[in-house]
Nucleic acid binder design. Structure first.
Lengths: 330, 330
DNA sequence: TTCTATATGTCAATCGTTTATCACAAAATA
DNA sequence: TATTTTGTGATAAACGATTGACATATAGAA
């Protein structure tokens, strides 16, 4: 049995009240007693039961963080940043890896409520708006509008889409394809697509929109990309994420298509990992650290002042183009 | 204010006792009341406060999972597997990204205790044995011996080290270098090194052991790898992890060294991600799903029967060699 | 000496939920 | 009709910690 406050008090030779006074630092306490209690805690490896504490209205200092998959380097880096920032603010993370599973996300949401988290950062979006609306807790959403009440943080997906086309065009590509997830309303990828379309139109090129399912297995994805490359006349491809872009590079290599000479490719996300381990890939870089920072700041503000009206509903952070070999001009 | 049991009872027009009976499914309850209570819960979006519940001796069904960094694909995949398996067993994960920070790991350990987790899976090892010993909770360790009482799950690092040398030798390499983290006692990498040494001796080759710090920034790492490649006569390199191996490939490419003609390289870990996005790399594949399975099974057994003596202290899972282009025989 | 700041203890209520005990009634069974 | 089963409610104790009210004691200051 884990030790409790009474055990500490007994060991220190003081009353429970005094022990509690030491721990919670209120009332008059002599230096001597303070030390006695602390060393008793130390000896017993005592940790105040935060469950019991929270019952008293004290906050749990727990934040639920829901994302689709930490094996995706982008989410991994974002979650790690979020975790670090919350940790410095003395909050701890309960990580929910919801996948693309509606039921799992719902389960997790319930669990977070049951565990009295102080707030939620939602990055997985399998559930409908109303389910998030009913939570009755401070929530901040990443990259997707959940409801009127929930602020959204995202990068400038639209500008990213335009930028990618612009760069490919400047590098000489004229048959610029878009390769992304199947359309799903409300999805941030839509903005990237919109950026692509608008810039294509502006340049008086023609649109070529292809989709590969995100959830599809990468080997299948690779297969359909090869099909696309052989059947099309593309000399430029805007991918909606880096992993897809790498598959394109791979497919091109296998088919003997030279990048960037015959084909230019851009990705999206620009994680540190991809930048380091695939230094040949040009990409739209999301400001991951900043996104994390804003998510955390906005959430903590909501937690501290839940009744303040929202200052801002949308936080759109700028993206940057990282020019690497895959879009070099010949 | 979140709704409580009394609110549900009131809304359903029953007593708290009855409501509790419905939720906890005991005693006599008519179908009618059951429905009334459930629909009241539904309407209020009620979740029983798991804090209060746990106070009553019910388990939290929370597991602490401590790892150094989820941005490392190996840990990401392992953690994701663990999370999935725990979820199916109706346990939820509190993720602790401890980095290489002793203090942070300690903080997290405290937090997990305070939150009454049912058990811990420890994959970060900044802390000493005694700190884990004092926890007084079911713990399972990944890849490192923590104490006499704590079972360890790992892959067969020793066999992996031998296997890598064997493969490089078979492919024609005779100057086989070892590239890994600086020595740190108790570290599983030591076993990989030992495997390397034993096999090198057995083949009557000479040992060449080089280290690059794990925590070092990858660009620095890349720099020292280039230095190694230019200054040495290596024709084979055994890397202790895939990421390092990829840097070696990158360095070789930049230096115009042909892989596998002039240099053969093996990695270690063999995550799905690396296999997919770096299909040219030969590597020792750890059975990630199996490791997760064993970690979870052993832990859950400890939780269910904390007093049973441990059946086994070490669970060593087999590794496999994945032969790809980087170790092709010319 | 009297007053007060400091230091500690006792006691009890509280947080939200669970659960045991009693009590009572209606329905089903003998 | 008598008895048992089923269904519900009221009450209170418990989980571990917090906190306020109150009592008491000692030190030093006025």
């Amino acid at each position: 049995m884990r030790p409790k406050l009474t055990d500490v008090a007994k060991k220190a030779g003081v009353s429970v009240t005094t022990a509690s006074r030491v721990i919670n630092n209120y009332g008059y306490i002599s230096q001597k007693t303070r030390e006695k209690v602390f060393s008793a805690m130390e000896e017993l490896n005592y940790q105040p039961n935060s469950l019991a504490r929270s019952l008293h209205g004290k906050s749990t200092h727990l934040i639920g963080v829901i994302f689709p998959a930490i094996t995706n380097p982008f989410f991994a880096e974002l979650v790690e940043q979020i975790e670090q920032k919350l940790f410095s603010a003395d909050y701890k993370v309960i990580l929910c890896n919801a996948g693309s599973d509606k039921e799992k996300e719902r389960e997790y949401l319930k669990m977070l409520l049951a565990n009295q988290v102080d707030g939620i950062i939602a990055g997985a979006h399998n559930l409908g708006i109303d389910e998030y609306n009913r939570v009755g807790l401070p929530i901040v959403s990443f990259d997707r509008s959940l409801s009127e009440q929930i602020p959204i943080v995202s990068c400038d997906n639209y500008a990213g889409g335009k930028m990618a086309v612009e760069e490919l065009y400047a590098a000489g590509a004229r048959h610029i394809y878009f390769l992304g997830n199947p359309h799903q309303s409300g999805n941030p990828t839509d903005q990237r697509l919109k950026g692509y379309c608008d810039m294509i139109d502006q340049l008086k090129l023609s649109r070529h929109i292809h989709t590969v399912s995100f959830s599809e297995s990468p080997s299948l994805k690779l297969f359909s990309i090869k099909k696309l490359l052989t059947e099309s006349v593309a000399d430029g491809i805007v991918c909606t994420d880096d992993l897809t872009a790498i598959l394109v590079l791979q497919a091109a290599r296998e088919l003997g298509i030279k990048v960037p000479e015959q084909l230019k490719v851009t990705g999206f996300d620009g994680t540190t990992q991809i930048q380091l381990y695939h230094p040949e890939l040009s990409t739209i870089v999301q400001p991951i650290a900043d996104i994390a920072e804003v998510l955390v700041q906005v959430l903590l503000e909501r937690i501290k002042q839940p009744n303040e009206p929202l200052k801002q509903m949308q936080y759109v952070l700028p993206v940057e183009f990282l020019r690497r070999e895959s879009t070099f001009k010949i």
